[in-house]
Design a protein around this nucleic acid. Structure first.
Length: 443
RNA sequence: GUGGCUUUAGCUCAGUUGGUUAGAGCGUCAGAUUGUGGAUCUGAAGGUCGCGGGUUCGAGCCCCGUAAGCCACCCCA
């Protein structure tokens, strides 16, 4: 008999979300949505499946290998999106005449990469992106940084750091060193500075980019600069003199850090890090990475940057832009490790005990009263013993149980039991909402 | 895609040099005389020892393959 059962299992890199994790993830998405909207970003959505050529277009051979790709029932060559940026490029090109510019959108969705798994790295995961396209203005670069900052603040993080750099500075440097041809390889090596150290970087630059030890050392000299953003910029300025892109990069960074300071952002949360380069080669200007101070090993939890031309593969319209992507599942993995995920399995603070089955209507009615007041409320479905129902309430993580039997109905009152403290008080129905509300607010 | 480590109940693990019906804690469910939980006590359910092959009289324990998880490379959220 049982041999006929199908073994319940999920695919490698794919996973289920139980209530505590699902609640935490929805919370992150909701907070992000609010922050984006507060800056005027508007939502869009695109299909999970695209023509393979759309996603392959950008031609990173690495991402090609990671594509979930197949032939559909109509014999079309299709693939699952592996990020939200390429679909956005297609979207922008396709709807250019309808959206107008500048265009600020956010997009939260699932993406798929057939990559090997690790903690915080899955084959199916969510991204929460926001971008501003159709403008070159540094104001948008600065705003992007503010959004990232507000995002982590709103999520309740105190300890995080946003590292900023500018590709123009790096390009200016490489130009002056005669390494402009091998930009991608050099930057990829440089990006690993924190991981493989100085000698490792020099070795890799030699092997991968054909850089001489002298050239590599000069690159590292830049990357090793530390201090306040303006101190670093002061050091860089003379070294990049004569390089047009380099100087522009310096100027944009200077303006950015000035504005950030003026806007009142704590200086320890935002820093200039000349060694971050981002692997993706479509970034051309400002680049961002965000690290959690308490779990830096998980990697960047929010990354992005400025690009010259988002949709060049799909339209001759030039669409510069800047944006970033929040790694929702990576952030969740970090929160999990840090023990920050609440054990509660319910989004409702109040459980109404089904004490007397003959009064079911009363319990359902009071549930509606509380919900109308914005208080999520569940009514227990079985008339089990009160103890059982309270046990359920406690284990699911409810904060209050509402109990009423014949005594209470006679006097028009409800008993509110605080599941944490065990305290219980009787209140008239007219005061029920305000009492619960004030108790919730005082937490 | 490459390499290393791991895989026994829902979870965390024990299982002696391979030897009869595989254990514990936690969790779940049910009770401890019918209006109050998180403590304690009692009891129950729950495992083809990841899966498939092999060696052996006999394998959770040895060998091979395979899958998944973790770590590193690669890349990245």
């Amino acid at each position: 008999m049982s041999s006929g059962l199908i073994k319940p299992q999920t695919l490698k890199g794919f996973r289920d979300y139980l209530p505590p994790l699902a609640l935490a993830r929805e919370h992150i998405l909701e907070v992000a949505r609010q922050v984006y909207r507060s800056y005027g970003f508007t939502p869009i959505d695109t299909p999970a499946l695209e023509y393979a050529e759309i996603l392959l277009g950008k031609g990173g051979t690495e991402s090609d290998k990671q594509l979930f790709r197949f032939t559909d029932q109509g014999d079309r060559d299709v693939a699952m999106r592996f990020d939200l940026t390429v679909p956005f490029a297609r979207f922008a090109a396709q709807h250019f005449n309808e959206i107008g510019t500048p265009f600020k959108r956010y997009h939260q969705g699932t993406v798929w990469r057939g990559e090997n798994t690790q903690r915080g790295r899955y084959r199916e995961f969510m991204q929460s992106d926001f971008d501003t396209i159709g403008t070159d203005s540094n104001a948008s670069d600065i705003e992007t940084l503010l959004v990232i900052h507000d995002l982590f603040g709103a999520l309740g993080f105190d300890r995080f750091s946003i590292r900023v750099n500018n590709r123009m500075v790096l390009n200016g440097l490489l130009e002056k060193l005669g390494l402009a041809e091998r930009t991608a390889q050099v930057l990829r090596a440089l990006d690993k500075l924190h991981k493989i150290g100085r000698d490792g970087v020099i070795a890799e630059m030699g092997e991968q980019a054909g850089a001489s030890p002298e050239q590599a050392a000069r690159v590292l000299e830049f990357a090793a600069l530390t201090g306040s953003p303006h101190e670093i910029l002061d050091h860089l300025q003379p070294l990049l003199a004569g390089s047009a892109v380099g100087e522009e990069g310096i100027a944009r960074l200077r303006e950015l850090f000035n504005a950030v300071a003026t806007a009142g952002i704590a200086t320890d949360r935002v820093g200039l890090d000349v060694s971050i380069a981002r692997g993706l080669d479509y970034y051309t200007g400002t680049i961002y990475e965000t690290f959690l101070t308490d779990d830096p090993t998980i990697g960047s939890v929010c990354s992005g940057g400025r690009y010259d031309n988002l949709a060049g593969l799909f339209t001759s319209q030039k669409l510069p832009g800047v944006g970033a992507s929040l790694g929702v599942d990576r952030l969740l993995a970090a929160l999990e490790k840090l023990g920050q995920i609440s054990a509660a399995s319910t989004p409702a603070p109040v459980l109404v005990v089904l004490f007397d089955e003959s009064c079911l209507g009363q319990y359902l009615r009071i549930g509606r009263v509380l919900r109308a007041a914005g208080i999520n409320t569940e009514v227990f479905p079985d008339s089990k013993k009160v103890g059982k129902q309270l046990q359920y309430a406690d284990r699911q993580g409810f904060q209050f149980a509402l109990i009423a039997g014949s005594d209470e109905f006679q006097s028009g009152t409800w008993k509110i039991k605080d599941l944490k403290s065990g305290e219980q008080l009787s209140v008239a129905e007219a005061d029920l909402v305000s009492t619960i509300r004030s108790k919730l607010n005082s937490k």
